[in-house]
Design a protein around this nucleic acid. Structure first.
Length: 790
DNA sequence: TGTTGTCAAGTTTTT
DNA sequence: CTTGACAACA
């Protein structure tokens, strides 16, 4: 047996070897969090405190789950089968498949991704003649998902006004539609699974008895429903080992509730709170920068990272005149780094919003530097791939109207919007799916629809005994998709992607350990199978017996709970695939700060550190918005191992117009001693006549006198890039408009405010003003009665 | 039915 | 500026 505990620091060791009690591990960036989690599992098993089937480990992304599985297998000579390691959604899907009847779902239920869900909602609203202007489908989608993530069914939603009552009504209709079609959306997977356990005591008891050891990664990202689900599984006796970092909570906008950490500590009476503060990633100056910045946040659980690595290099700061000049400097610096022998893949350029990538990409192309952008379309989200999947879904479940509507006229077969509308009306009239309603539609439309129905039925019959890859291949041909893209001019890539779907199906079959000729649409019986056993409880059976570890070890006791096709379709929905372009070659990495979480690079550029961009202006409206932005900056900083660059630009092209920004307030929160300004640091007040320190973020920025300072510097020529940096660009603007950013103003209607941005000139000039009482507004200077205040 | 034009909007994102 | 959605056409 390997010595699992070798090379752990005292805190890590303490965490790994905690008794079987609720524990909260506050793991700072780069503190070996994943290692602790994995070693904990291995240690529990090695010591005989736990057997694999008692382990439930939850992550947020499939990537994290895969990494955990792989590292565990490398660490442990024992069998990791029987453990449940996966994402919240993946695990819930697995449980719902095993107990589909108890969950009130058809065996072939399918999963709607976000785009499918939106089109299902649009279809619903169209059918009910709802005005999309008044009730935008997107808003309804948000409303529904939000409610589900709070654990609320339509009945329980507290509708305060007529508008919300309409939403609740639509929410109910939507749920009914999903139920009729046999589909579930993402939050529904969790809520349905939660309810399954909550309403079924024997089942709950079974899983509680089984999962004695529950481990949760990235606990700060859990939402209310996920936390409730965990609590339910933990029951009275099971220990949850939660690992997280409140300082890296950057997903509040999608429902993550950092408060869960505190609630967990309280509700589970956590006695074991361990902080991992030893950082193994970054050099000292970088860490000091991160520490001092995040210290500005209130309501922290409290943590300070330290390193043995020494100070290392200072953090370099650069002020550019424009966004393109910023990009130019970045590219020059990257070239220099590459010349020192640094691999391109060890360099990352981070930005707050995707729109910023274009200028940088453009400059990299000109500089001949290979790069890779993260984000964008993923494999299973491509239209041709979704089309193929829709046919597969229809074969498996003819009631899936989302799939039906998607491909009924693709490739075109003369079924227009009118016919589809008629069909949808008929389906509503008979309360059935569109596929079932086809015979009720007569006339010419009826015959086209009839042949489509025949086509699907034919494909269903033909693929009855086919394996999954054969089924996929057959459907791509028989549906006419292949022929369609063969004739299309730009169809070559799409054809290749369709072939990739076949390959993905083959890979799926092999990874799941099915026989090559296992029919795609039957539950495989595989006596003596060696692949991961699934748990299947005969819950229709009144005498539910809790399976013990011995039962679970016997594959004969553990038949699969879904067909290969259903599994593949779930896989496609739950794991949309890679979202990075041009994978493979050594390239500079471009991504948003969000996408960088969990990654590390030798050299990191954080760009666009400007007020309004980072921190983002929209965050000002959100509660705790500024603190989340600061955490985001903290995450960005802690990605760097050896070299960190921070940059900002005086002017930036955004949405086709030049905006003049002031440097991010975050610069005032960094340790001056760890920074090296490559351009002279211009004191905050010098140029802008006062900074809007907490404007819009809830504090009163008017009551901050004495920050103004006069500037003594003149135009400065940047020695690095060789381009002149007009240090007073904005003041020049001021001559044109009569106003400048940072200036206090008075408006007869809105009262006191401060100019936060200026754009345009002459008669078109507009000023963005942050009013003390009325928030931020754009005002046309030619119209607005705006008076400067001394 | 596919194409063309107009118009509005434009943080962050995994499942 | 750039993209996506949708309405008006050929």
């Amino acid at each position: 047996m390997p010595d699992l505990l070798a090379n752990l620091n005292p805190e890590q060791l303490a965490a790994v070897t905690l008794p079987n009690e609720p524990a909260l591990i506050l793991a700072g960036a780069g503190s070996g969090k994943t290692r602790v989690l994995i070693t904990r599992i291995a240690w529990l098993i090695q010591q005989g405190y736990a057997s694999p089937p008692t382990i439930l480990a939850v992550t947020f992304t499939n990537k994290a789950a895969r990494e955990m599985m792989a590292r565990l297998q490398a660490l442990l000579p024992i069998d990791t089968r029987g453990m449940w390691i996966g994402t919240f959604h993946g695990l819930c899907n697995r449980m719902l498949r095993a107990h589909f009847r108890d969950a009130g779902l058809p065996q072939t239920f399918q999963i709607l991704d976000t785009a499918d869900q939106l089109s299902a909602i649009k279809r619903l609203m169209k059918g009910l003649n709802i005005d999309d202007e008044k009730y935008p489908a997107k808003n309804l989608q948000y409303f529904i998902n939000n409610a589900k993530e709070q654990g609320l069914r339509p009945k329980s939603v507290d509708a305060t006004d007529a508008f919300n009552r309409k939403f609740v009504e639509l929410y109910e209709a939507y749920d009914q539609q999903c139920q009729r079609e046999g589909v579930v959306d993402f939050p529904e997977l969790l809520l349905r699974c939660y309810e399954l356990l909550a309403h079924n005591p024997p089942l709950r008891a079974h899983y509680q008895a089984r999962f004695r050891n529950i481990l949760v990664d990235e606990f700060q990202d859990t939402n209310k429903l996920q936390y409730a689900w965990l609590k339910l599984l933990a029951g009275e006796h099971n220990a949850i080992f939660a690992v997280g970092d409140d300082d890296q909570s950057i997903y509040a906008f999608r429902g993550a509730n950092v408060g869960n950490m505190h609630d967990f500590e309280r509700e589970f009476r956590v006695r074991n709170l361990i902080k991992l503060e030893q950082n193994y990633r970054s050099h000292g100056h970088i860490l000091d920068t991160a520490n001092l910045l995040i210290a500005n946040n209130s309501r922290r659980l409290g943590k300070n990272l330290r390193t043995d690595a020494g100070h290392g290099e200072p953090v370099r700061v650069y002020e550019a005149a424009t966004d393109s000049q910023e990009a130019g400097w970045i590219v020059e610096e990257i070239k220099a780094l590459i010349n020192t022998g640094l691999a391109r893949g060890e360099i990352a350029v981070l930005y707050r919003s995707n729109a910023q990538s274009r200028t940088i990409e453009h400059t990299l192309v000109n500089g001949g530097i290979p790069y890779r952008v993260y984000g964008g379309l993923r494999f299973f989200e491509r239209q041709e791939v979704k089309h193929a999947l829709a046919y597969l879904r229809l074969i498996d479940n003819p009631n899936d109207d989302t799939a039906f509507a998607r491909v009924v006229n693709f490739p075109t077969r003369g079924i227009g919007a009118r016919s589809i509308e008629q069909l949808a009306d008929a389906a509503r009239l008979y309360n059935c799916s569109m596929a079932v309603a086809v015979p009720y539609v007569t006339g010419k439309a009826g015959s086209s629809l009839g042949s489509f129905a025949t086509l699907i039925a034919k494909m269903r019959a033909e693929t009855q005994q086919m394996s999954l890859p054969e089924t996929v291949e057959h459907v791509i041909r028989a549906s006419g998709l292949a022929a369609h893209y063969e004739t299309e001019r730009e169809g070559q890539d799409r054809l290749e992607n369709l072939q990739e779907v076949v390959n993905a199906a083959a890979a799926f079959v092999s990874e799941e350990g099915y026989g090559l000729d296992t029919p795609a649409r039957s539950i495989p019986l595989r006596p003596g199978a060696t692949a991961a056993p699934e748990i299947a409880l005969a819950t229709d059976d009144p005498g539910v017996d809790v399976l013990d570890a011995a039962d679970l070890a016997d594959p004969a006791q553990n038949p699969d709970t879904m067909t290969p096709l259903a599994g593949f379709l779930s896989h496609a929905s739950l794991e949309a695939g890679d979202n990075q372009a041009q994978a493979g070659q050594d390239a500079v990495q471009l991504m948003t700060v969000h996408a960088a979480k969990g990654l590390e690079f030798t050299a990191v550029f954080i760009t666009g550190l400007e007020e309004g961009l980072f921190p983002h202006e929209n965050s000002a409206q959100e509660t705790d918005g500024l603190e989340e932005e600061r955490r985001l900056a903290y995450v960005a900083i802690t990605r760097a191992k050896e070299r960190l660059y921070l940059s900002f630009a005086q002017s930036r092209m955004l949405h086709g117009q030049t905006r003049y920004n002031i440097r991010s307030r975050f610069f005032d929160e960094l340790p001056e001693g760890s920074l090296k300004w490559l351009t002279p640091k211009v004191e905050a007040g010098a140029r802008w006549g006062g900074r809007p320190d907490n404007a819009g973020w809830g504090r009163d920025w008017f009551a901050r006198p004495g920050r103004e300072r006069s500037s003594s510097s003149s135009d400065y020529v940047n020695p690095d890039a060789g381009a002149p940096v007009p240090a007073f660009a904005n003041t020049q603007r001021a001559a044109d408009t009569g106003f400048k950013v940072g200036q206090a103003v008075f408006h007869t209607k809105f009262g006191e405010g401060m100019v936060t941005a200026l754009e345009g000139s002459g008669g078109d000039a507009r000023a963005q003003v942050r009013f003390k009482r009325h928030g931020e507004k754009w005002l046309a200077l030619a119209v607005a009665k705006l008076q400067p205040v001394e």
